[in-house]
Design a protein around this nucleic acid. Structure first.
Lengths: 217, 217
DNA sequence: AGGTTTATTTTTCAACTGATAAATAACAGG
DNA sequence: CCTGTTATTTATCAGTTGAAAAATAAACCT
């Protein structure tokens, strides 16, 4: 991995000089790991040590620690979101239940990792705006489409989702999310596999929603 | 509230001397507020300022900052747990659905506040043992009793809950919990009232569980 | 009053923090 | 080989941190 020089008997690269683009990307990638593990309050010196670089070098690439944290947010929240996710939900050639299962399996393939989860929780405790923006995205691109598809599948006329319906979808979403939190943050021994948990959550959601949307049953 | 002296024109109490028991309790109470808002990495000087007291005084009552944090955990996790909660779930004179609604309403009356939620999230990111202990408590005292009651109500013979059943109960629990997180941590404008969200989550759980426990429907 | 206890403050320390300025050395082009 | 550019390090600063030691003063007991 580090085989730049042949003689790595004492791997003290001294002064490894990288093009600024590469270095910057390396900094952000390692900063995600570092802050995810240690929290945003951890020192820039700690990060520099992890990078094998002196601390003032960070300030050549980012004007301040907060700017670096902003780049971390960008890399985690913005860049890992897949715009094609909503399409998985609106493909009416398949039953909604199948679509929900597929979506939540691929969605959690992205967000169910220690980095993503911890960055998300840390940032929400530090300040709410980023998380609020992310949740707005989830509501508009995921939950409201799901509810529209559910109305369609139940033969109901299109209508904007009510607040109570959105909250109900949030409970499924949050239940699945919290499974990831228990697994990856609290390292609780979640015994059942992800796909089963998702399938059960989706089934309960569908059953509950059909009661909710069609009051006669 | 603070009417000790009549003349409070300049409320600079100088050196207010309290019995050590009271002072200690005051420290812990304010430490909960302080750390919930600012995080556990915040300074003991900041806490002392909030207390109107000098920082070294904290070290007369707690050997170290971590010991104080330990007291905060104790006060939040241990002291606010009500041992009678499981009894709400096992009162078979009422339908299980009603019991679940009652329980989750009184349970969330306790934990759905900014202090409890933020302390919980902060502590989980700082180190997992406390949260893991708390989750074990929830599983044993809440979720497994719920599943046992569900079997009874469905006319099934008593049996230890399977892992998949426990995970399914966790999804309901986590869905409700995440509603509180969105409301109190992310300050998302949750429009629907708590009781409705709980009722819907419980209904979906019951519907899904009856499918799960009695495979024929 | 006088004397003892102890709650509280003042002073201080060494380590650590984010950030800046200046010195150094690696690389590119001639 | 020389020269300019710039990536990287060294040195440094002012502020903050958890914590200990010593000085002070409020209450309590005769």
């Amino acid at each position: 991995m580090n085989g730049a020089k042949m003689d790595d008997s004492s791997d003290k690269p001294g002064r490894r000089r990288l093009p600024s683009g590469e270095r910057r990307a390396e900094f952000i990638a390692k900063a995600i790991e570092f802050f995810a593990e240690e929290g945003f309050e951890s020192s820039t010196r700690g990060l520099a040590k992890k990078l094998g670089v002196t601390q003032p070098l960070l300030y050549r690439y980012f004007p301040s620690k907060d700017d670096l944290i902003g780049e971390v947010y960008e890399a985690v929240y913005v860049n890992r979101w897949r715009p094609e996710w909503p399409d998985l939900l609106t493909d009416r050639s398949r039953p909604l239940r199948d679509r929900l299962n597929t979506f939540y399996n691929v969605y959690t393939d992205v967000i169910f990792n220690r980095e993503w989860m911890r960055i998300y929780l840390f940032s929400g405790l530090k300040g709410v705006d980023i998380n609020r923006r992310y949740m707005k995205l989830v509501r508009q691109r995921i939950l409201e489409p799901i509810l529209a598809e559910a109305r369609a599948e139940l033969g109901l006329p299109p209508a904007p989702a009510t607040d109570a319906e959105v909250e109900f979808a949030w409970v499924m979403h949050g239940g699945i999310f919290y499974y990831g939190v228990r697994d990856l943050i609290y390292e609780s021994s979640v015994s059942t596999d992800k796909a089963t948990v998702i399938a059960d959550a989706v089934a309960a959601f569908m059953a509950g929603l059909s009661i909710k949307l069609t009051p006669q049953g």
